[in-house]
Design a protein around this nucleic acid. Structure first.
Lengths: 190, 190, 190, 190
DNA sequence: AATGAATGAGTATTCATTCAT
DNA sequence: TATGAATGAATACTCATTCAT
């Protein structure tokens, strides 16, 4: 008797992400996910109790992966600007390299799928970023504005930039990325 | 003889917007839309050939309304910064006051509903904004970055700010709005 | 205030016949009939209480017209064979010239539309033909077979011949018609 | 693992035939077919993509079965008349014993269901019969009329005879059948 | 009488989920 | 575990009929 196969879970996630990107949450069916993942419909239900659970699990997975990536290589002992730049770049890179996951997360809001628990759980993701911004304010680098407003400003400019690059099918160049960072930094700094 | 009732189209739009906000595109049914609009299912199909056409029409309508609002009170003969501020504020206000429409438009991307025609048609919406940014560059006020990057930066910071204000249920205060504008302006200016 | 317009009834019948031929009883809708007849859906219901009544009335009309035509120019005082030939030819001609009505009648059997009353009413249509065959037997011209079997044989060969001519799109030539009559006559005669 | 059940296809066909006879193609619904066949609505769609395909497949099946039966026990080496009689009787018997299928086929013409492909495919069914008639002419037994006219004459007299026997609820007696065959033979022979 | 918008029950079809193998 | 056929509730859409004008 085989045990649950981790590779299958991965296949299911990949299939779901790919299909959601192609047709949107509204247009994806369980049997389609199964077919794309190369398994039978029934098997899908061995791995996930139902569609709800599949989407919620995948959403949480995506959210967690994104947060985990944000502070990679961040070293609090280094000067603030370089640390901030690293985080900024991590966010940008994650969203470029995992655009499918970004789309899934966007589609999940306002969908009938996300449950209270998942929402609550993922709400805390901004905590470490919040701290980062506070440090910028503490070090007198950033404006004295509401911390949240600053954070949202930072996030927003990245999100929209990546989204636009994807849809206009013009990959972000080094120059554009630099420009984006400078705008963000100049906007936030005192 | 009964004539087609323009108010009904409005009711249908309102019902759809409200339901999409509540449950997302994925969870909205035609009969629910009809019920919410206070008409019979069949009546819905007198006004819109099918779900596809309803969504596409509503999407185009929302897009148009948003663009139309952006340049309200804009006077090209006035100094650049005050003109830019007016447009910036128009965008912000539109998205605050028409948050339901914003959500619909967001949900439509990656949905199986938007057809080529609608997408193409609405792609041109950024043209006037594009021109505005160019003016800022011509007048040597804005950075020498890619015009598109500047535009997306402006848009992004507004979008995310409004979205966040809505979900955190903290209405934007005058102070926060000022802070947002300042960040945007400082980010873009030379 | 206008009275019911006989021409409209005619237009409705024509529209129905044409549509039934094109798509079969199964595929014809009341609003389509109205549109084809050049009137509004509501108007159709002034002329016929409902779809049932429309179909039944049209069916009875077609049946009656066919019977009425069968004995045109028949003169009982003339020799039997020439009289029989006239009736035979009348049936053939009616079915050629009114193929649409033939199709409607065929489609009505086994449809949920024909009501008891209409069926009963049209069952008597064979009476005069029955008499004709009996005369043939009385005059010792026809076989001593069951009168009904003789009648059905006569009818059957005409029906199938016309149907085939229509579908194979080869109009019946004088020669073929003669051959058909000869087969029928030779088959029935002693 | 469950496998597709061939008996189910049979049940679906039987249910459809029975319902079409009762209410005509116009009045048969998919859920009724499913219920009568003793399966769930959804199951019906595992076996047939849609109503169209179900009807077309059943039509083709009926047509094929009828043709296959026509030359049972036919022995080309036996004298022509006895061979012809066997075919004639096979056709008669098939149509008596499979009256439901006959009705279905009749109803299908002029319905919106039959597709080009099915029509074309079933058009060739008359080929072997055509050959039989030609043999009759070659052996100088049949009239020198158009082969098609002869064939249609043969078919027509059988069709109408069976139809009438069914509707008048008087089963065909041996005597009537003999009379029918004699009329057919006498009509066709030189 | 004429119109065609409005109605809502009814129809084909889909799809999340279960179940027998 | 894995399979995919089976289920039936739900959904998009249609259509006979009614009704306000």
């Amino acid at each position: 008797m085989k045990l649950k196969d981790d590779r299958k879970t991965e296949q299911i996630f990949e299939a779901t992400l790919s299909l959601v990107n192609e047709k949107g949450l509204a247009g994806v069916t369980m049997s389609e996910i199964a077919r794309t993942a190369g398994i039978a419909t029934g098997t899908l239900y061995i791995y996930f109790k139902n569609k709800d659970e599949l989407i919620n699990t995948l959403f949480a997975e995506c959210r967690k992966a994104s947060i985990d990536s944000y502070f990679k290589n961040y070293d609090a002992s280094k000067p603030f600007k370089s640390g901030f730049a690293i985080v900024w770049m991590n966010i940008l890179q994650y969203r470029i390299q995992n655009f499918e996951k970004v789309v899934l997360m966007d589609q999940c809001y306002h969908s009938p799928f996300l449950n209270e628990c998942t929402i609550k759980m993922t709400k805390q993701w901004k905590q470490p970023l919040f701290k980062l911004i506070e440090r910028g304010k503490d070090e007198n680098v950033f404006k004295e504005a509401d911390t949240f407003a600053l954070l949202i400003f930072m996030i927003g400019s990245i999100h929209e930039g990546v989204k636009n690059a994807h849809y206009s099918q013009k990959p972000l160049t080094k120059a554009t990325i630099d420009a984006m960072f400078n705008m963000c930094w100049d906007g936030m700094k005192k």
